[in-house]
Amino acid sequence: MKSIIKYFADIFGGVRTLLVGMKITGKYFFSPGQIVTQQYPENRKKLVMFDRFKGELIMPHNENNEHKCTGCGICETNCPNGTIEVIPTRIETEDGKKKRILDTYVYRLGMCTFCALCVKTCPSEALAFGQDFEQAVFDRTQLTKILNKPGSTIMKGVE
């Protein structure tokens, strides 16, 4: 007799646990307000990334097309992957001294692992992370970027 009771208790107990699970999925089925999917390309306009989001490395320029990079190359030595290449040139200032300035700042996005050491160690805070995450391109060569804009100069007061 005991085994018969156990047999039926097993059935009803089992069915009850199944119904508990069905209650959860059923609840979500009938409450479409709980949908969490983001409709990505449509919500592009509204999409705001967090300000610390690491999308790509950028070199902020001000309205006079000036950046803060002195071309010291600290970022280049700190980069674990050889992502950054700083090509400096030497110019002669008005008072006749030779000065090292930035010529080209090459950034290879395809090799970057976003460890943020470059931004952190830059003594003149010339680098930052951009918010643009749509970095897909058709050709690998397009991932090599030159960060200083053409014709840009170093900001006054930055040594």
Partner: peptide, 27 residues
């Protein structure tokens, strides 16, 4: 992951620690 992203800048690969502390202060 959103909490991580806001403070650390990364969602999965955080790189938030550095010897001596953490990279940035809490958001």
């Amino acid at each position: 992951l959103d909490i991580f992203e806001e403070t650390c800048g990364g969602r999965l690969l955080l790189s938030y620690n550095c010897p001596g502390g953490v990279m940035y202060d809490l958001h």
